[in-house]
Amino acid sequence: MTATLSQPRLLPSGDGAVTVEFSRTIDDAANRRVLALDRTLAREPIPGVTETVPTYRSLLVHYDPTQIDFDALGGKLGELAQQPVPPTEETRRWRIPVVYGGEHGIDLEDVAKTLGTTPDEIVARHIAGDYRVAMIGFTPGWSYLSGLQDSLQMPRRQNPRLLTPAGTISIGGVQTGVQCLAGPSGWHLLGRTAVRTYQLHRDPIFLLEPGDRVTFSVVDAKTFLEQDRAAEGGEIVAELIAA
């Protein structure tokens, strides 16, 4: 007997979008429902829907109100959201190389002190994780990963930095992330990767997609520089383990 799924909230977002909200907190089960609905809409498009934007806990659905109204669209989305989420997903697995600590991960030692351990142990815990891309957002290619083990979870910085380097690998709250472009951040910087999760003139432009799995591996500073030069030329220096 199939369990009844909770009905998501349907929230108007202006006059041309609706938010399908599955949870009010970061939740892997809710995120799987978000991505399942997003894929269903890609396979079975609703006339009038122009774009979908998945997040951790909701799906933003843009639509043309001259083709379909809010009530009609909401009814269809509610029905589709009740479809069972596939128990297993065909997913890609990536291994992303990271140089940890020093100038590349300026918060590594402070994180270790705060958590009562050593920098080497923080790195060991971080590369032991099996992460899942929950959403892409904030800036192009910024990949939010769920699956951070409890022993690495800590509040974000009280004073966010106005600028952090491109390629930063960081942790914040219950998440870890891959920051593609230089920008502000309140997360704790553990290291950097040469991998470009977003590169405008490369095919594909976006490397990671919601639902992909990610693990990290350690490289030294020399290897990072070599990979960075290769990535600048358009090479994908992440390793695709499974597709």
Rank of each mutant, 00 (worst) to 15 (best):
T4F: 05
L5T: 09
S6W: 00
S6P: 09
S6E: 10
L10H: 10
P12V: 09
S13L: 15
S13H: 14
S13M: 13
V20E: 04
N31C: 13
R32S: 08
A36G: 13
A36Y: 06
L37G: 11
L41C: 03
A42R: 14
R43Q: 11
E44S: 10
P47I: 13
V49L: 07
V53L: 15
T55N: 13
T55E: 12
H62R: 14
P65M: 10
P65K: 11
Q67S: 05
D69H: 11
G74I: 07
L77A: 02
L77E: 03
G78E: 09
E89G: 04
T91I: 00
R93H: 15
V98Y: 05
Y100C: 04
G105Y: 03
I106F: 14
L108P: 05
E109W: 00
K113Y: 04
T114N: 03
L115A: 01
T118C: 03
E121V: 08
A124W: 00
H126R: 02
H126S: 03
R132D: 03
V133A: 13
M135Y: 03
F138N: 03
P140K: 14
P140D: 14
S143N: 09
G147Q: 01
L148H: 02
D150C: 00
Q153F: 04
Q153C: 12
Q153S: 08
M154S: 03
N159R: 08
L163D: 03
A166W: 12
I171D: 02
I171S: 02
I171W: 02
Q179M: 14
G186I: 10
W187Q: 05
H188R: 13
G191P: 12
G191R: 06
R192C: 04
T193Y: 11
T197Q: 05
Q199M: 05
P204I: 12
I205N: 06
L207D: 08
V214G: 02
A221G: 00
A221E: 15
T223C: 00
F224V: 06
E226F: 00
R229E: 14
E232Y: 12
G233H: 09
V237A: 07
L240C: 10
